[in-house]
Write a protein that binds this DNA or RNA. Structure first.
Lengths: 112, 112
DNA sequence: GTATTTGTTTTAAAATTTAGAACAAATACG
DNA sequence: CGTATTTGTTCTAAATTTTAAAACAAATAC
């Protein structure tokens, strides 16, 4: 559709928000809380790989830490292309959610 | 994912915005302009049918009009469940797009 | 060395998206 | 009438995305 899917958008935003802590399991936790719904591991790792392959994300592998089970992590950060894709999806959302007539169904979106 | 897909969201919003003119081809035109990208016919009709089956949309068939080719149209409107689903996706978006740190990449989302 | 924890990869099924052919029914007009 | 054109919906198969969960890997704990 020439626009990020919802999951892709949420993952890119998660990487943005988590900054120096943006790696697979952390992203999964963050999004599970956001969605109030436990995501499977694959639900995060599969799109992460795709987003990287398409140039929306860059990644590098860390050294292991000395915590229990502290393996090497694969960290991600947004590329310029990734920011551009978020920009685009944000524009579409703004358009799509503006100018909605009153339906009398008890709710209207509020853009803080 | 327990949340509307992007296409589902856009179609529900289109039905909302188009009001008394919410039928397949019109929705297609509206979304094609919004996305700046010509959607195929199936890209609209397939999800429309699914959204109806799931109770997000109600529909009824009009009488033909006396315009050239003016066949009976299938009009749609949001159900309460449909409004609720939009409400939910709106909440998730608001959360996901708020509290983003400055990346110094030349852009930050503005919520009008 | 065996258990436990943190982390990534893989895989296959399910669901969604997409393009476009097919079909349907209306008016136009010779 | 018959054929063309327009508006509209249905169908369908391929491509893509999502999802769950098993497998694998590597670290510390004891």
């Amino acid at each position: 559709m020439d626009i990020l899917s919802r999951m892709e958008e949420l993952i890119l935003l998660s990487v943005w928000k988590l900054q120096e802590e943006a790696y697979g399991l952390q992203i999964r936790t963050h999004l599970s809380e956001l969605l109030n719904h436990e995501l499977s591991v694959g639900a995060v790792y599969v799109p992460l790989k795709r987003l990287k392959k398409r140039g929306y994300l860059a990644s590098w592998d860390s050294e292991p830490t000395d915590e229990r089970g502290g393996r090497s992590k694969r960290f991600f950060k947004l590329t310029e292309k990734g920011v551009g894709a978020l920009q685009q999806v944000h524009n579409v959302q703004q358009s799509a959610w503006s100018g909605l007539p009153d339906l009398g169904l008890g709710w209207k979106p509020v853009h803080s």
